[in-house]
Amino acid sequence: MKIIHCPLNGPRNAQEFVHGGEVVAMPDPHRSSDAEWASFVFLENNVAGVVREWWCHVPTAYWFIAERDTVRDEFIRTYDASELFRERVEFTRPAAPKGDAPNGQGA
């Protein structure tokens, strides 16, 4: 049985966790190109070595961050996401150009 150390709940069977992808910086949604945004949403760097990843402990729906060696498949460190994300990320609606109807329902 493979054990993962959850920062909230302690050591747990790996079957209780799901992988959430790499931790990468989010580009500005209003300024990035389609290619940059698609890369952020869909593409993985697939690094051979130590990577920083999102993991979720499913019974508690608790998301945390893990540093994992993908070559040895070993967890090096797990910690609460608040160590990296200290402020809430707010999303603002961009100002619509004059004359545009909302939701694309213009005549």
Binding site: N9, R12, N13, Q15, E16, H57, V58, P59, T60
Partner: peptide, 10 residues
Amino acid sequence: AQTSLARMNA
């Protein structure tokens, strides 16, 4: 303990 119990979250 918040964990898997008989394959259910509990």
